[in-house]
Write a protein that binds this DNA or RNA. Sequence first.
RNA 1: AGAGUAGGACAAAUGGCCGCCGCCUUGGCUUCAAGGGGGAGGAAAGUCCGGGCUCCGCAGGACAAGGUGCUGGGUAACACCCAGUCCCGGCGACGGGAAGGAAAGUGCAACAGAAAGGAAACCGCCAGGCACUCAGUCACAUAUUAAACACUCAACGAGUCAAUUAAUACUUGACAGCGUCAGGUAUCCGGAUUUUAUGCAUGAGUGUUGGUAUGUAACUGAGUGCCUGGUAAGGGUGAAAGGGUGAGGUAAGAGCUCACCAGUCCCGCCGGUGACGGCGGGGGCUUGGCAAACCCCACCUGGAGCAAAACCAAAUAGGGGAACGACUGAGGGUGGUCCGCCCGAGUUCCCGGGUAGGUUGCUUGAUCUCGACGGUAACGUCGAGGCUAGAUGAAUGGUCAUUGUCCAGGAGGCGGGUGACCCCUUCGGGAAACAGGACCCGGCUUAUGGCCUUCUCUGACA
RNA 2: UGGGGUGUCGUCAAGUGGUAAGACACGGGCCUUUGGAGCCCGCAUUCGGAGGUUCGAAUCCUCCCACCCCAG
Length: 93
Amino acid sequence: MGKRHHTRHFVVIIKQNGLGITRLGVTVSKKAGNAVKRNRVKRLIREFFRLNNSKTPQGYDIVVTAKKDASYLDLWKTKDELGAIFFKKKFSL
RNA sequence: AGAGUAGGACAAAUGGCCGCCGCCUUGGCUUCAAGGGGGAGGAAAGUCCGGGCUCCGCAGGACAAGGUGCUGGGUAACACCCAGUCCCGGCGACGGGAAGGAAAGUGCAACAGAAAGGAAACCGCCAGGCACUCAGUCACAUAUUAAACACUCAACGAGUCAAUUAAUACUUGACAGCGUCAGGUAUCCGGAUUUUAUGCAUGAGUGUUGGUAUGUAACUGAGUGCCUGGUAAGGGUGAAAGGGUGAGGUAAGAGCUCACCAGUCCCGCCGGUGACGGCGGGGGCUUGGCAAACCCCACCUGGAGCAAAACCAAAUAGGGGAACGACUGAGGGUGGUCCGCCCGAGUUCCCGGGUAGGUUGCUUGAUCUCGACGGUAACGUCGAGGCUAGAUGAAUGGUCAUUGUCCAGGAGGCGGGUGACCCCUUCGGGAAACAGGACCCGGCUUAUGGCCUUCUCUGACA
RNA sequence: UGGGGUGUCGUCAAGUGGUAAGACACGGGCCUUUGGAGCCCGCAUUCGGAGGUUCGAAUCCUCCCACCCCAG
């Protein structure tokens, strides 16, 4: 089991996979809203990892699960929340 | 200006940067790179109907089950659309309607009410009977009263005659008619009388018509109670009470009869393809509501769904077949090879089904745009042109700038209007909806942003 | 994609054309020195929402909404 990190709108599960590449999984359930809202949340999460690909560590499996109110976020708030995990905590595994 | 009504088009735009998914070309050669080009909707949604398509089933018929239900048209089809009919709602523009059959049958209608459907008498109305009460009429009887009229008798009054007498007095007798009472303010007033004045002056009886009281019998009327019958006009109950109004009629009433009206059915004529409408005549004289209760009638429907279906096809297990082999040892291990040693009952090949996985289905179609013609319209026909998403954990986004739209606010305008108010300029803010294809179409329904147009009603002003 | 079910007071729920039962909870009162228990009383303007049929709808019909379940 990987390590869980909770923020206001996301649950992030991280585990070392030993492959030397980073794999991303995204989970957005029906609780988050209709199809438009769910797709938007997925895009925001992917956009975050695309823009910050060089800053995130390699060799991990990352699963991001959206909570209920995640559809009200914009890109900057998403960056603040996820950045707080990946930039400040320094991966205490 | 406000409130509505019907309809239409749209679904912010442009650019920069960073990204996403297919396609084509070139290079690389399943992965990548470069270039080119494309990339969600009016509802893509809900999955409520109808089809195409695919597989399965199917001689034909009937039943069941489900659905639809005014007429005509449109369509591949529909529960959809168009044009109408009728009914309902709205002041209106306009909107809505599962709108066949209730004299085929079964059933339902709480409470209230007498009665909820081939009827029924609670109150009421009418007739008859019985009992009681009251009143009246007539008759009789009794008692009483004495109001009216008539008559009789008597008396009295003013007279006449006769007798008597002096006398015309008094007395007695006889005699005809009249008065003895109309009326009013009623112990009083007023007035009459064969002659003036004054004064006086009524009693009894009978009869008739009565009145009052009682009784008897009959009759009539009214009331009360009971019984029998007639009656649906009226009251009352209810959502609904077996047509409405008026007249006649009747014991009281009633379509019992008549007139007019409403409705239903039938017939005829006219208009319409038709639903239906109009006119005329006739009949029963009124035969209620609910079928989104069962049901009847007419029509429609085979089942499943692109995770359908087709093709290619690992690994493992099992099936069929062939060859070799089971102590005369197939095959395997060891080893460079042979011998040897060890293990050893199956081994090898082929075939078919088929899972994972992949490919197809997969976007050229009841298609879109424009034009012409037909049709009131829905729609159809013809011609020209176009190709417009095909993902499969599922792609169209992020950010910046400018412009545009909307909202509330501030400031300004020698802008408009009688006015409510509207318009323009500017400032700095804020907002931008509902929502994402998943085989494809036609509808329906629901969600949702502002814009434009048509028409209606109301208010103010002219 | 296809199919099925549920929605009634705060909770569990009955009711299937004619007044929305009941229990628990809650509120008030009685009782008790007080609390509990017990007794009495109260508690649904809209039965998920909107239309329609009917004299009358929680119930019948249509369309929506929310939730749950099943099959591939």
